[in-house]
């Protein structure tokens, strides 16, 4: 059975800057999120993973501009292109279709409003028929759901700890039972124990409510544990896409390999940690050919001339794609990338 898609991103291109020479932050990114699935997006900071989800939700702040592509959301009434929605349509669709938990737990809550008000105002905006008491009841329910005492509805954000604030954000995201939940590095500001608890909570909620999740993080080992599929991004492009278990067992792109070996694995045998030499490229001055070639341990001469497209792996594994010239026919994969 082929799972149904919920969110399809096709050829999404994003520029930063309005001037004569904008930075091409995303260059033709395509991704599909299926129903009930957890899709992980990983990559170093600045690779465009946050840009991707912000652009797909049209929340990217200026000077970001979407310059091409489409984002199809499969709602109950068939697919719609988010990029072609009017403001009113977009406003009405938001939070019902896709809810987001943002990076900064500290700043995601309006400091001058009580938690309850911020939980209920989205409900009020989307369910104009609901009564005040109903909304309040729902807010209490949501707080309980994420393990916060319902009395905290009266609290101001500054009276909550960082972990509690992020839980409130998750509760808020659940308010309208969205089809897609986007988590943008939701736990970076929190300590490891808290990270764990919050992630477990989200996954438990997913099992119960059946929404799909897009999970963005730079921590690949964490992703491998929770995600079904993983997309690895580098310099505004996807370089590898595969099932999480596959990526963990056998990365096919030298960058994925490097990324995977920069984090200690959470389970299984220990392996030597090795960072990736060099630093992410300047998007304003991308190297010619493969953007990763200057840092790539396996780079060949051709890599500086030819830009690799996302395509099947050398072994032609189903559902797996990689953007690396090593996988073109007639080449032998280095030992690190072959089984």
């Amino acid at each position: 059975m082929t799972p149904e898609p919920v969110l399809e991103i096709r050829d999404l291109a994003v520029d930063y800057g309005y001037g004569a020479s904008p930075v091409h932050a995303l260059r033709g990114v395509s991704l599909t999120l299926h129903k009930g699935e957890v899709l992980g997006i990983a990559g170093e900071s600045g690779c465009g993973k946050s840009t991707l989800v912000y652009a797909a939700t049209r929340l990217l702040p200026p000077p970001g501009v979407i310059v091409g592509g489409e984002v199809r959301f499969h709602g109950d009434d068939g697919p719609v292109d988010i990029l072609r929605m009017t403001d009113q349509e977009l406003r009405a669709a938001r939070w019902q279709d896709t809810a987001i938990v943002f990076q900064g737990a500290m700043n995601s809550l309006n400091p001058v409003y009580r938690v309850g008000r911020q939980l209920t105002d989205a409900i009020a905006a989307h369910r104009p028929g609901s009564s005040r008491a109903e909304r309040e009841e729902r807010a209490r329910e949501l707080l309980t759901m994420v393990g916060i005492a319902p009395e905290r509805i009266r609290a101001f954000p500054h009276q909550l700890s960082g972990g509690m604030r992020q839980r409130v954000m998750i509760a808020m995201a659940m308010a309208l039972e969205p089809k897609v939940l986007i988590l943008d590095e939701p736990t970076t500001a929190l300590d490891v124990v808290m990270q764990r608890q919050i992630l477990e909570q989200v996954m438990e909620l997913r099992d119960r409510l059946g929404f799909s999740v897009v999970f963005i993080t730079h921590d690949v080992s964490l992703l491998i544990e929770v995600a079904d599929h993983i997309a690895i991004m580098y310099a505004g492009e996807i370089v590898e896409q595969a099932r999480a278990s596959e990526v963990y067992r056998q990365p096919r792109h030298p960058y994925s390999h490097g990324l995977l070996h920069s984090f200690p694995p959470l389970h299984g045998p220990r392996r030597p940690l090795a960072g990736i030499p060099g630093s992410p490229p300047d998007l304003q001055a991308l190297p010619s050919g493969c953007p990763f070639s200057p840092r790539c341990p396996e780079a060949m001469d051709v890599c500086t001339d030819v830009h690799p497209d996302l395509g099947p792996t050398a072994a032609a594994e189903p559902g797996r794609r990689v953007a690396c010239l090593l996988h073109t026919e007639g080449r032998t994969l280095p030992a690190s990338l072959s089984v």
Binding site: A13, H24, L26, G28, V67, G69, E237, L310
Partner: peptide, 16 residues
């Protein structure tokens, strides 16, 4: 976010 499709700079990246 503004969506602009009339610019003369098509996405240069790979297209699946």
């Amino acid at each position: 976010t503004a969506v602009v499709r009339d610019t003369g700079c098509p996405p240069s990246g790979p297209a699946l």
